[in-house]
Amino acid sequence: MKNLIQKTLKVREIPVFLGLLIVVLITGTANPAFFTLSGFQDITLGVAVVATLAVAQTLVIVMKHIDLSVGSTIGFSAYLIGDASSKGHGFWYCMALALGLGLVVGAVNGYLVAYLKLPSLVVTLATLYIVRGLFNEIAGGNTITEDMVPKAINFMGLNTFFGIPYLFLVAVILMLVVGFIMKRLRPARDLYAIGSNLAAAELVGIPVARRVFLAFLATGAVSGLAGAVLLARFNTAAANSGNGLELSVVAACVVGGVAIAGGIGTVYGAVIGAVLLQAITMALGALGVPQFWQLTVNGILLIAAISLDRYLSTRVKPTSIMGTN
């Protein structure tokens, strides 16, 4: 039993989860409105977009890479869906368009990072600008309005399933699927190996470039499809949609224990991190704290998260000659 408790405490996601509980409890006590169903729905609906993207981002961060282009991709994709739908195209056509955009951006990122060995930070910063630039050119001053949004998407954004917003369910299902893949499928385990020790990964014969390429492709694909989530959430899209989202996404991952140094972290952590950041934003609102403080708190939380990581990793004691004792 003691062993089980120790093991549980070692799980990286636990501290974040406890942090989340504490935030919810404190806020709920101070402001009972927070504890209601609508309080729950506010948080879960509010976090859906970032949580979805955080799941995808985890794929690249565990490889010690980063994808900053997701904010531009999701915004552009949301616009394209609305635009195509308003021109009379069906739902699946719109989704195919979204997926196509995501795959193209992901393939470009992946090719440049995996095969040309360019640094992902710079590559995806560049594609962030390029995609946003194209988006601005195509969208101009147009705005997608509610009547242009495909019916199915509109429905998803406004309704709940036994009290749980559909959009949050989408994020949770994605999390469970990707979580299973990352734990149980060999190619996905390679991502952890690559992020943990690149030279060794090459030495044991892991096809590093192919894995890196596919991970960026997958992240791009999810970001493209997630355009539907963004559109459903706000029922509108314009040239600035999704602006800056990438940073919230990276913050969520890091707070959730996905190490920016690679090799470690799970999609569960990333989603919990996203929910924690969202809960804090809401909590500060519920407690009447001026809104600009929420950014400061997010920043402090980020530093706390990486400091905790540092502390935990330096605390590991070298094993003795007789193994672990």
């Binding site: 385990r189 952890y192 190996a193 992020g195 943990s196 020790n197 690679g262």
Partner: peptide, 14 residues
């Protein structure tokens, strides 16, 4: 070795 992976996975990595 891969510092972030378990010993078991290190033995069978790849």
């Amino acid at each position: 070795l891969f510092p972030d992976l378990t010993l078991a996975e290190n033995v069978f990595v790849g």
